[in-house]
Amino acid sequence: MEEIVFGIGITALAGALATVAGAAEDVESDIGSQGDPNSQVQLAPQMGYIHRIFNKAIAGEPPAYGLWVALGAGLAWAFMAMQINPILAIVLGSALAVFVQGIYATTAYLGRTASLAKFGQPVYIDILKSMTTVTMAHAFIAIFATVAMCHLMISALGHPFPLPLLGIVWGIALGAAGSATGNPFYGKERQYQEQKFGAGVPISASGNIVRYAEAGQRNSLDNGFFSAKLGGPASGICFGLIVFFELWRTVVFEEFNIWGPIVVGVVVILVFAIIDRYIEVWARKNFGPYTAPEATEEASS
């Protein structure tokens, strides 16, 4: 019994770390317009909309985060093999992984923007200087929290995988959670505020992203503020729940039966599928599709 209580404590801690990681990951990728929203940012100059949005397309988020977290975990593993204290090792590993992430971000922005010279999109060096550092800070939190969570799973819960392998698995899961949950919020809500509600995105509006702010010109830091409000926390809850349920079912039900966690896993998936379906139907019924307001009074003529 004591073991289960200890295991649940670790599970809760890992879930909390995952929540922080998910929130930081989504804000990082939105500041860099990575993933879902990237296509429109990339397309905008070709349609004549020159912008000051950071465009760092490194890969899809899942492979990119697979690398950052696996790299942080691999370096931390190597430092631990050199007899360095685990906490220091994880911090050093994450810092070096963030260095690689920052370099990739700068080369991606420079490459994409230089290849758009034909359409008159200049390279804004101040964007590179101010936004790369902000994405690096967010990426550090995401990587550190995920690697720390993997280390907890190994040292406290006795997971048999080595640290880098857990890193690659949870890194890809982290990227997928952020990409699926948080990005649509930025890509579909923020980039298309100039379209009328329910208008969709016709081809003629492709690339017509929001480039000017309430005052002055919008850059990706504003998108970071926007994402930090709802998209980031939503991604955090998503990844936190994934990690929590994944560990919880093993810690609690493995005691009873070796097949227990697998059955519980299937049940959890079914329960979530039903909840998701219910929310989707409810949202469709209440918010969409767009209908013109019914004419209640005669048009004056």
């Binding site: 490194i58 890969a59 690398l67 990739y104 290849s115 080595p162 640290l163 880098p164 690659i168």
Partner: peptide, 25 residues
């Protein structure tokens, strides 16, 4: 120690990044 997994990801991102970053007209 699964460092081979780190090498796998390093290579997989490095091989695609250059063209992915520089594509365009």
């Amino acid at each position: 120690g699964s460092i081979i997994a780190v090498i796998f990801m390093l290579g997989a991102i490095a091989i695609q990044h250059s063209f992915n970053a520089c594509l365009g007209p």
